[in-house]
Design a binder for these strands. Sequence first.
DNA 1: ACCTGAACACCGTTCAAGT
DNA 2: ACCTGAACACCGTTCAAGT
Lengths: 196, 196
Amino acid sequence: MRNHREDVVDQALRVLDTYGLADLTMRRLAKELGVQPSALYHHFPSKQLLLAAVADELLARGARPQTAGGTWEERARACCTQLRDAMLAYRDGAEVVATVHAFGLGAQAPERALADAVAGSGAAPDLVRAATRTLLHLVFGHTLDEQTHLQAGSAGAIDDDPRDRSDLEVGVGLVLDGIRARTAAHRPETPTSRTP
Amino acid sequence: MRNHREDVVDQALRVLDTYGLADLTMRRLAKELGVQPSALYHHFPSKQLLLAAVADELLARGARPQTAGGTWEERARACCTQLRDAMLAYRDGAEVVATVHAFGLGAQAPERALADAVAGSGAAPDLVRAATRTLLHLVFGHTLDEQTHLQAGSAGAIDDDPRDRSDLEVGVGLVLDGIRARTAAHRPETPTSRTP
DNA sequence: ACCTGAACACCGTTCAAGT
DNA sequence: ACCTGAACACCGTTCAAGT
């Protein structure tokens, strides 16, 4: 049974969603593909890089056509919501994306989309960069929390208070307010950027 | 050689800082303690919970005496900086803390300290809670990035732009601005809080 | 190009038994 | 209270060889 790179990623996503990240092992994935574990190394040089491809595919599947209209705040919010929804759509999705991100791999596309939206504020490039990373961390962190508690809740034991989407929305709102306040203070009317 | 719980955590921190999180295994730690791997299960029911104790100890060691003075913003900033510094003080420190946090364990103390500082803004309890989590995610995420790139840089290959502390400071500033803007809009003079 | 078979050097965890 | 010894059921990765 000859597999292509895409088949491997596709099956990995299926294993992830069905059995969770802990069971997404090279050996398990190979078995599910009807192949020897060593065969996977023909497609990916390491599990780490396979996981990066899985994370990218997971995010790509959650991507909806860019809404070009609206204010920059609305577009930034839409990016964050879409990112969150994409991660929540798969079991342990947030953990996979966060892990890959921690390795310094993948997830370039969402960052670019978010950066574009934030750039619409007219803030200076340095502020755009810092704000984009802030929003990204916020979405990752909150969604990780939310998914952990969702899954822990469905598994059984939790006495902690639950996490819901409003926490993320409030957090994003705070950052957007912050950006607006800063850009308003520095250049009240000019829509183009300037480096100090 | 009879060990206590604290000896185990202490040695785990040493192994972590010397060899990294990937080499902090139960077997490796046991060997370093001159003990069989199974002996560790007398002190901790699982590696997960051992790691939680390691994360807590790591953060506790980085804790400096609370600076009571200053504005709430200064205290919040101090909390974030201290948290970052504590994680950066140990190899893979941010990854350990983030991993433990993702399991829904540990790191209660820093969250409380931060929540206290944010509460000083006079914001409503719901906003304080959301803002505290936002700041926490921000510090975790940024420090993870920073440490990954620091260590990748010292290891060799990186063509990416480096992460420095200013990104975190800007991010925290944005959130604090957002809090101030919101509380100012809702109650310009009153220092006490109110639930809607 | 894609895969097999076999091996290497590891994991976390359990459990009866020892002192 | 703290630990040993032995086992169970796994890991990721490499590499010569096959089609």
